[in-house]
C-alpha cells in the first residue's frame, strides 16, 4: 500500500505506523459538563466502520509527521491524505 504524503509524495506503508481513529485529534474539554462521558467516548469507543474511515498515521521511518488519512477499510483505497497539523480543530 502506498500513502501519498502531502510533502514527500508516494511512500510505502511500511514506513508508517497506524495510530488509530482520527477522533483522537479532538480531545474533549475537561471543564465541560459531561466531560466524564466524553472522555470515556474519546478514550475507548470507536465506530470501526466498514467503509470510509478517517485515521491517523505516523511517518516514523520518514519525516516524523502525523497524517490524517481517509481510507476505505473495505477496499483499502486511500481517498485523501493531509498533514494532521493542518487539520486539527477543523
Amino acid at each position: 500500500m502506498l500513502i501519498d504524503h502531502p510533502l514527500l509524495g508516494p511512500r510505502d506503508a511500511s514506513e508508517f505506523i497506524y495510530m488509530g481513529d482520527a477522533k483522537l485529534l479532538n480531545r474533549p474539554n475537561w471543564k465541560s459538563q459531561n466531560s466524564k462521558t466524553k472522555f470515556l467516548d474519546y478514550g475507548y469507543l470507536r465506530k470501526n466502520p466498514a467503509g470510509v474511515h478517517k485515521e491517523l498515521w505516523y511517518h516514523e521511518q520518514g519525516d516524523r509527521s502525523w497524517l490524517l488519512v481517509t481510507r476505505n477499510t473495505v477496499t483499502h483505497e486511500i481517498l485523501k491524505v493531509e498533514l494532521a497539523r493542518d487539520t486539527k480543530g477543523k
Binding site: L8, G9, D12, Q61, G62, D63
Partner: peptide, 19 residues
C-alpha cells in the same frame, strides 16, 4: 529499499529517511 530511485523522483543531492 522501498523508495522510487529514479532520478526524476530521487535526484542527486536528495536525502530521504526510509526503512
Amino acid at each position: 529499499c522501498p523508495l522510487n530511485l529514479s532520478q526524476k523522483i530521487f535526484a542527486i543531492g536528495d536525502v530521504k529517511r526510509t526503512i
